[in-house]
Design a binder for these strands. Structure first.
Lengths: 164, 164
DNA sequence: CTGACTGCAAACCCTTTGCAGACCG
DNA sequence: CGGTCTGCAAAGGGTTTGCAGTCAG
């Protein structure tokens, strides 16, 4: 098990280069920047969040290229997605085994690691439903920021706050 | 811990009636049918799936009413949601502790129960991220249907198949 | 050089909102 | 009966697609 060491994203970038070459795909500036952005964060951003970040360094990049690149990375197995749907998906370049903490209030998502939880075994009865590819723990709670800013959240549904 | 006994949805319906009365909300036919539908399934349908099911029995129901009702139930705490975003959400009327199996191929989601997994403890280090409300296991794999129909899924992203 | 890739814009969802009539309590 | 709730239709926001110019290999 590997914690997110300083050069974790550098390692992922190397992996991308190898896989892309094998697949005969071009490594354009856009693709590199998009992947770099995703590989550097733990916040599981959605497409638009990545877009805004990349746009800082590369003002001409377009949102559709971000979408196309993310799904391409996904097809290559370099990126996984959070959430059962393909709309409003959030992406994840961390291929190491990990678990998720997500804030019920603002939607922030963070990885955490736990050797103990990695050892969890799913019951045999799961075979009735299908074959297992992967299992992890989802923890839901209030992030430290939302613990502080305790306005009453009754009524309207949470705004689409993105985990930063 | 309570397994989904035959009358599980009946129990949930009673709970709805009590809570709705307390909140001074009207129990219209539409609301009852929508909740009934959701309480009877384990498939975590999205709004449109519920809509189509309710429409069988109540042809005049509209999709927006389904949306409004689901979020109302959510505000009452009678329904929870899957997925970190509020777009493409899937709903869940099962308030008992449970875990999820979801198919990486078609998006189907099913509950399963496990006394062993219920006992999992999240590491103390989680406090760095926030306070814990709930924790469960997410298992990803191939559902029995997708195990059979093994067309190559390379290339296009999965169609928006809904867990039936 | 050449085909894959990008940016643009328009199309295509899914979801939410404003309003007049219907219905629960 | 009164206020809430519904259905309709239109608006809103996010995601995908077709096309002509551009760039990596």
């Amino acid at each position: 098990m590997r914690r997110s060491e300083p050069r974790g994203s550098e390692r992922r970038l190397q992996h991308l280069k190898v896989v892309a070459r094998e697949a005969g795909l071009k490594l354009t500036h856009q693709r590199l920047e998009i992947f770099r952005e995703l590989a550097a964060t733990e916040a599981h951003p959605d497409a638009e969040t990545i877009f805004r970040a990349v746009q800082q360094r590369m003002p001409t990049v377009s949102l559709d290229t971000v979408y196309r690149t993310l799904w391409m990375l996904h097809d290559l197995g370099l990126v996984t997605t959070l959430g059962p749907q393909r709309t409003g998906v959030r992406f994840d370049a961390n291929l190491d085994r990990h678990h998720h903490f997500s804030c019920v209030r603002c939607g922030l998502v963070r990885d955490f690691e736990s050797a103990e939880l990695d050892g969890l075994r799913v019951p045999d009865s799961i075979k009735r439903l299908g074959s297992v590819v992967e299992a992890h723990v989802e923890v839901r709670g209030l992030c430290t920021t939302c613990q502080r800013g305790q306005e009453t959240s009754k009524g309207k549904h949470p705004p689409g706050t993105r985990g930063g």
